[in-house]
C-alpha cells in the first residue's frame, strides 16, 4: 500500500449549462474535487451557487427538458476496483450504478418518496432490481434496513405509506432506501434542511454512524455552515457556479482565505456573539449586494462586485483556483497578500 490511494470519486473540470428562454446559460464550470474512501466532502454555498447542479450532474439526473450539457470528467472507483467516468457512461450502465453503488438523498423526503407505494415496497424494489432478490427476501431486507436506520416498530412501518410518517421518519426511510444496496458513495443534498434541529441532529448522527460502519464516502451538500463545521472532513465553497476555496474543515474555519468565505463566516450571528467582548450588541459584517445573474456574469471574478478587497485587476479575467500550502486552494488574485479584512 505504498502507492497513493485513489480517491473514491475524482471530479475534474465539471461544467453544466442549460437551455433557457434567454439562451444557453452556464450554471457550473471548472468544478474539481476528490473524495477519498470513507471521507466526507461538504459542498457549501448559497442558493444558486451550483451545489445541487453539481450533484445532479454526477448522478446523471438532470431533467431531459432542460437540455443540460455536462462537461468534464468524474472518475468513480467501483466496488470491483474498476474506474469509470460517470459522465461518459451509457445510460444502462449508469442505471446499474445509481441506487446501488451510488446513492442519493434529497432535501424534501415527501416529494422524493412515492406516495402510492408502501415504504417496504419502495426499499424492496431497489434490492430486487440491483441485488436480484425475490419478493419475500427483498421485503425481509427492507425490514433489516428500517432497523438499520433505527426506525422503531420496523415490521409495522414496512406496510405504511410515506404520508403516515413524520418528516424525520421519512428522511430515515430515504436513508434506508439509499443504504439498501450498500453504496460506496452517498450524495446527501441538503438532507436536514427541512427538519427541526433536534431531528437534524438525529439524522446527522445516523449518517455518521452508517458511514463509520460501512466506510462509504459522503458528498454533503448544504448551506448550513454549522453542519459543515460539525460533520465534514473537507470543504469546497462554491460561489456563482465555481469553487472559490477548498480546504480541510479546521483550517477553513480557522483561517478562511477567499474573501467570500471570510465574508460568509463573518455573517454568522453565532460567530459574532462568540467573538464579541463588548457588552453592546455587535453588528454583523454583512456581504453587501447580491449574487450576480448567470445571464450577465461580471467580466472577471464573479465575486468582485461584492468584494471588500476588490481592485481593478479583479475585473480583467476569472482568477484561477490557485494552490496554497497544506493542500488548500483559493480562487483569488490577492490571496497571497495576507490582507486583514476590516468591517
Amino acid at each position: 500500500m505504498n502507492e497513493p490511494i485513489t480517491p473514491r470519486l475524482s471530479v475534474r473540470g465539471l461544467s453544466t449549462s442549460f437551455m433557457t428562454d434567454r439562451g444557453r446559460v452556464t450554471s457550473v464550470s471548472d468544478v474539481s474535487f476528490d473524495i477519498p474512501s470513507g471521507g466526507t466532502l461538504a459542498l457549501v454555498g448559497e442558493s444558486g451557487s451550483g451545489k445541487s447542479v453539481t450533484s445532479l450532474g454526477l448522478m446523471g439526473l438532470h431533467a431531459k427538458g432542460s437540455q443540460a450539457i455536462v462537461g468534464g470528467e468524474a472518475w468513480f472507483v467501483k466496488r470491483n476496483g474498476e474506474r469509470v467516468n460517470l459522465l461518459a457512461l451509457a445510460e444502462a450502465d449508469k442505471r446499474r450504478l445509481r441506487g446501488n453503488e451510488l446513492a442519493m438523498i434529497f432535501q424534501e423526503p415527501m416529494t422524493s418518496l412515492n406516495p402510492v407505494l408502501t415504504v417496504g415496497e419502495q426499499i424492496a424494489e431497489s434490492v430486487r432490481l440491483h441485488l436480484g432478490m425475490d419478493r419475500r427476501d427483498a421485503l425481509q431486507h427492507a425490514k433489516k434496513m428500517l432497523d438499520l436506520v433505527e426506525i422503531p416498530a420496523a415490521e409495522r412501518r414496512l406496510h405504511e405509506y410515506p404520508h403516515q410518517l413524520s418528516g424525520g421518519m421519512r428522511q430515515r426511510v430515504m436513508i434506508a432506501l439509499a443504504m439498501a444496496c450498500n453504496p460506496t458513495l452517498l450524495i446527501a443534498d441538503e438532507p436536514t434542511t427541512a427538519l427541526d434541529v433536534t431531528i437534524q441532529a438525529q439524522i446527522l448522527a445516523l449518517i455518521q454512524r452508517l458511514q463509520k460502519e460501512t466506510g462509504m464516502s459522503v458528498l454533503f451538500i448544504t448551506h448550513n455552515l454549522g453542519v459543515v463545521a460539525q460533520y465534514a472532513d473537507r470543504v469546497a465553497v462554491m460561489y456563482a457556479g465555481r469553487i472559490v476555496e477548498t480546504a480541510a474543515v479546521g483550517p477553513l474555519f480557522a483561517a478562511p482565505q477567499h474573501p467570500y468565505t471570510r465574508g460568509l463566516l463573518a455573517c454568522l450571528p453565532g460567530m459574532a456573539v462568540r467573538g464579541s467582548v463588548a457588552k453592546s450588541r455587535p453588528r454583523l459584517t454583512a456581504i453587501s449586494g447580491q449574487v450576480c445573474s448567470p445571464f450577465e456574469p461580471p467580466p472577471g471574478c464573479a465575486f468582485a462586485p461584492r468584494c471588500a478587497l476588490h481592485i481593478a485587476a479583479c475585473d480583467t479575467a476569472m482568477p484561477p483556483l490557485a494552490a496554497l500550502a497544506d493542500g488548500r486552494q483559493a480562487r483569488c488574485i490577492r490571496v497571497n497578500e495576507k490582507i486583514e479584512m476590516t468591517a
Binding site: V197, A201, A229, Q230, G250, F253
Partner: peptide, 11 residues
Amino acid sequence: LLAASPIPDPA
C-alpha cells in the same frame, strides 16, 4: 435544543 444546534466551529 441548544445541544442539537450545530456550532459553526470545527474546534
